[in-house]
């Protein structure tokens, strides 16, 4: 992710965030997602496409946001998705999860629920058996609860 895309990302956020928020549980991390991606790819080119990342555009609560990721793949013995990695740059620990699958998965699709420390762009990275890497992003606005809850 280069500077331009980050600037565009923040501009986008400013435009849509009626309730921008920083969650109570910590600051956004200084650990770089770029560096984390590099440890997975070893410097190989990451292409956009083949990965579909679905999150709601507006999340009711950052504590639990549904996420679905699907990678286009034949899922045969010679052509399959090896792993899927999720990153949320504004989380205190950006590497949300890593999933390892193989040809026996039949379909490269994972659903889960994630925490998001504020409105941000989530990144999904897929490593394929042919050595290629693919990615997709999704923007989520996290809304704040109206009432303070001390319980």
């Amino acid at each position: 992710m280069k500077k331009t895309s980050r600037r565009r990302f923040f501009a986008g956020l400013m435009a849509i965030a009626a309730w921008p928020t920083v969650r109570a549980y910590g600051q956004a991390s200084t650990e770089s997602v770029d560096a984390m991606v590099l440890t997975v790819t070893g410097g190989a080119k990451v292409q956009t496409g083949r990965v579909k990342l679905e999150l709601p555009p507006f999340a009711d609560n950052g504590n639990s946001v549904s996420l679905k990721v699907n990678v286009e793949s034949a899922m045969t013995a010679n052509d399959y998705v090896k792993s899927i990695h999720l990153y949320a740059a504004r989380n205190p620990r950006p590497n949300v999860a890593n999933f390892y699958l193989g040809p026996r998965a039949g379909r490269a699709q994972i659903s889960t629920r994630v925490r998001l420390g504020g409105s941000q762009r989530v990144l999904a990275l897929a490593a394929l058996s042919d050595g290629s890497f693919w990615s997709a992003t999704a923007d989520v606005v996290v809304t704040l609860s109206a009432c303070y809850d001390a319980t």
Partner: peptide, 22 residues
Amino acid sequence: EVFRAEMGSGVAANPFLSFFTV
């Protein structure tokens, strides 16, 4: 082994996972 997950604090409480297998 048909599926393995490494999870961090970014996965929501009471973790839920859905995946596929043949």
